[in-house]
């Protein structure tokens, strides 16, 4: 664990409010992103992210420091997102880009922005069609840049399973993208 993380964990355990704010501000964008990708919707991503941070604060005494702080936090986020998914099965999901949280590419022209948005929408749609375990694994790898070892720790699976899931998810994703864009 990094020295900064060790110090931050100690301050969190001491109940410092400033430490908790620093903790949230450090990881909020990445946690909201992973929650949105795993859930397939930005609508509830901030709620799930908030739940993730509060759960992390409550269980900070149980954090043994065997893995990096962010690995531990991602694990809580993935589990919270999965719980949310299970709970949401009874009601329809709102598409990922409808909430408009993604930062717009202001430098590009209107046509280029539209084209980029269309491509992104297709990719998101294909991603959402993947089965959850494969989607989560692929998101942690491709969009969050975690190593196989980190993903294995976050998801509590073997490295071999991580490798297999990523491989199969990539192939399936490509098939889904081809289906949406036969040209």
């Amino acid at each position: 664990m990094r020295d900064e993380d060790i110090a931050l964990v100690e301050r969190l355990r001491a109940g410092e409010e400033d430490a908790f704010r620093e903790f949230v501000e450090t990881y909020q964008d990445r946690i909201i992103t992973v929650c949105a990708r795993v859930c397939g919707s930005t609508t509830d991503a901030e709620d799930v992210a908030q739940e993730t941070f509060i759960k992390a604060l409550r269980s900070i005494d149980r954090f043994a420091g065997n893995s990096a702080l962010f690995t531990w936090l991602y694990r809580i986020a993935v589990n919270a997102s999965r719980d949310h998914l299970a709970h949401r099965r009874r009601r329809p999901a709102v598409p990922l880009d409808s909430a408009g949280v993604d930062p717009a590419d202001d430098a590009a022209g209107p046509d280029a922005r539209l084209q980029t948005r269309e491509i992104q929408q297709r990719v998101r749609s294909a991603l959402d069609d993947l089965a959850e375990p494969f989607r989560t694994t692929l998101v942690l790898r491709e969009m969050e840049g975690h190593t196989y070892d980190e993903i294995a720790r976050i998801l509590d699976i073997s490295i071999g399973t991580v490798e297999s899931r990523i491989f199969r998810a990539r192939r399936k994703l490509r098939a889904l993208l081809e289906r949406e864009d036969p040209e």
């Binding site: 909020q28 990445r30 908030q50 941070f53 509060i54 990719v123 969009m143």
Partner: peptide, 21 residues
């Protein structure tokens, strides 16, 4: 996939989380 932009927290997110905690 790598080209998909990450999301950013809305204004005041950290304040809301601290208050909720």
């Amino acid at each position: 996939l790598a080209a998909l932009p990450g999301l950013t927290a809305s204004a005041g997110f950290a304040d809301r989380v601290v208050a909720a905690a």
